[in-house]
Design a protein around this nucleic acid. Structure first.
Length: 566
RNA sequence: AGGGGUGUAGCCAAGCGGUAAGGCACCUGAUUCUGGUUCAGGCAUUCGGGGGUUCAAAUCCUCCCACCCCUGCCA
């Protein structure tokens, strides 16, 4: 646990585990697993599950496995398993030697299916998908039994063997559990446990043409791995009777499934299906687009592992459906970066400033503090000269009452440099301000107000300190500003029409920003605070000629808040 | 003949019969060479609603209401 990691609070799952340990269930052993299907990239919702599973394991001196739930070869790809491995590692978790694949168990799963057949608990069914749907019944009416339900054990054994041998067409037959077609729980209405599907599997290649279904695979995989607590999301709650049924019928080690609510985030969609749509339709630039809630997107955006872990601890784990305010996530990254990100000065929307009383050819270097939150971060030199850039927002010709920054006749401090006073404005033919003229006070070098008899109250006060960059020394770089991907707090409210709620201004590219020269050779992934603006992370698109920065998050901005009220 | 869940502040969330933790957001004020940070304070007479049990109920009982999930050979 690093210095700024928060303590993980209690929740109903930890309490249950604590209870089980006290009762010496499983000899007090705790073993969990994180079981992603490799059919997409991991997102912040998975991070919640990862933190929970690995978190409780470590808290109770147990283990947590990584297991790929790869029972559907038509949707799963190696690219995804690699991305998942990278993301879980990056988040800071370690599964040791315990990286497994459900497909590792295909042989055993087959044997267990044979056992069910022998026990008269499963049968081969010839119903077509349509027929099966008709037989299933509805939510309020019971289903009808399959006409193939009473085949003999021998016949079932032979047919299942032939299914495996590839003697039947895809989809022509299934193996089904024999449970109860009149159950109120549709999952118990003779669920399919094997289907015929000729597809090359990312692990087993073309060895199989029949693949086990999730319900059958998951509980047995948990059992094989001696999982004690199988944590999953709420939608599997009514699969639990089936989970239990298989394990009981097979008479094998019986892990306990416990369900918790999945994470939703305001202004975001979280289903893999919808995220995949955004990627495929080109609405974002890829799974790792910094606007995506994917782990890889958040990483590229500049989020740190500890900030995500802290977030997961703060939101808690419960059974009530919830949508967490994205502001919570933003708080967590600010909290971490405030302590660790070096400060630098960069001007995003430049306004030229000429210091009229500063010598034309003079160049000075001033000391700037790298991180006021971290005395060990030291200082650096920042060049100063006659022509500078400041932020356009930091100057107003006709400022409102509460505007403290630069305005005609007003004095402000240039951070770590001098007090300057605006004496003139230059405009073009359209009336646009093209530059402003200021004078500087040499006595204020370093930004320190001189004490003096001239001011009886002590130091000369200035109401604002603004950032700046020396024009001559500036590094030019690109900055990408990100805003919410969706304009509605709940973009999914309209079902599949969620795309109509996309924010057209979720990405703003500023191709030519001016940055202090210390930003000349930055490494992708490095994070900085641009003073007074926000936290920024170097994008892999950066080149030696031109760094590219992603805005992770803005600083809290009480001035912006004030402006909105005005 | 439906089944399974969930309701505590704007958003999360503790609480487990003894009189509503904490965080985010928001609002004051102080400090500050970042309108940042930090610090101090404020923010639910009440727990979806009605009854009941009890000296005492968010916690127990009961009835009602609202919302979510389930009719893939997806996971």
């Amino acid at each position: 646990m690093s210095d700024n990691e928060i303590k993980s609070p209690s929740n109903f799952i930890k309490q249950k585990i604590k209870d089980d340990i006290e009762k010496n269930i499983n000899e007090g052993r705790v073993h969990t697993r994180f079981p992603p299907e490799p059919n997409g990239y991991l997102h912040i919702g998975h991070a919640k599950s990862i933190c929970l599973n690995f978190g409780v394991a470590s808290e109770f001196n147990g283990l947590c496995n990584l297991r790929f739930d790869d029972t559907n070869p038509s949707r799963e790809e190696e690219e995804y398993v690699n991305a998942i491995i990278e993301d879980v590692k990056w988040l800071g978790f370690d599964w040791g030697e315990r990286k497994h694949y459900a497909s590792d168990y295909f042989d055993r799963l087959y044997d267990y299916a044979v056992q069910l057949i022998k026990d008269g608990k499963a049968f081969v069914c010839d119903l077509t998908p349509d027929e099966m749907r008709e037989h299933r019944g509805t939510l309020t009416e019971p289903g009808k039994e399959s006409p193939y339900r009473d085949r003999t054990v021998e016949e079932n054994l032979e047919l299942f063997e032939k299914m495996k041998a590839g003697e039947f067409d895809d989809g022509s037959r299934t193996l089904r559990a024999k449970i109860d077609m009149s159950s109120g729980n549709i999952n118990m209405r003779d669920p399919v446990i094997y289907r015929i599907q000729r597809a090359t599997h990312h692990m087993t290649g073309d060895k199989w043409c029949i693949y086990p279904m999730y319900d059958f695979t998951h509980c047995i995989s948990d059992s094989i791995e001696s999982i004690t607590h199988s944590l999953c999301t709420l939608e599997f709650e009514d699969h639990r009777p089936l989970y239990d049924w298989f394990l009981d019928e097979l008479n094998v080690f019986h892990p306990q499934q416990i369900e918790f609510a999945r994470l939703n985030l305001s202004y975001m969609v979280m289903s893999k299906r919808k995220l995949l749509m955004l990627v495929h339709d080109g609405d974002v630039k890829g799974w790792d687009d910094p606007r995506m809630p994917t782990i890889s997107g958040l990483r590229r955006r500049g989020y740190t592992p500890v900030s995500i872990r802290n977030f997961c601890d703060r939101i808690g784990v419960a059974k009530a459906e919830s949508t967490v305010d994205i502001a919570m996530l933003e708080f967590c990254i600010r909290e971490d970066l405030n302590k660790h990100a070096p400060r630098v000065m960069a001007v995003l929307n430049p306004l030229k400033v000429v210091i009229t009383n500063y010598p034309d050819d003079k160049a000075d270097e001033l000391d700037a503090i790298n991180n006021p939150e971290d005395p060990n971060a030291g200082t650096r030199k920042v060049p100063f000269s006659k022509v500078l850039y400041i932020e356009r927002d930091d100057f107003m010709e006709d400022p409102p009452k509460k505007f403290f920054r630069l305005a005609p006749g007003r004095e402000v401090r240039l951070r770590y440099a001098y007090f300057v006073t605006c004496i003139d404005i230059v405009k073009d033919s359209n009336g646009e301000i093209t530059e402003i003229h200021c004078t500087y006070d040499p006595e204020t070098r370093g930004g320190n107000a001189p004490d003096g008899p001239a001011c009886r109250t002590g130091r000369r006060k200035v109401k604002a300190t603004i950032h700046w960059v020396s024009a001559e020394h500036a590094v030019e770089g690109e900055v990408r500003l990100y805003n919410h991907l969706f304009i509605k707090e709940n973009p999914e409210a309209g079902g599949d029409d969620f795309k109509s709620n996309m924010n057209p201004d979720s990405l703003e590219v500023l191709p030519a920003c001016y940055m202090e020269p210390s930003l000349k050779d930055v490494q992708p992934g490095s994070r900085y605070q641009f003073e007074r603006l926000g936290y920024f992370c170097v994008d892999p698109d950066s080149t030696a000629e031109k760094p590219v920065f992603n805005r992770t998050v803005t600083l809290r901005d009480t001035w912006a808040k004030l402006q909105k009220k005005m």
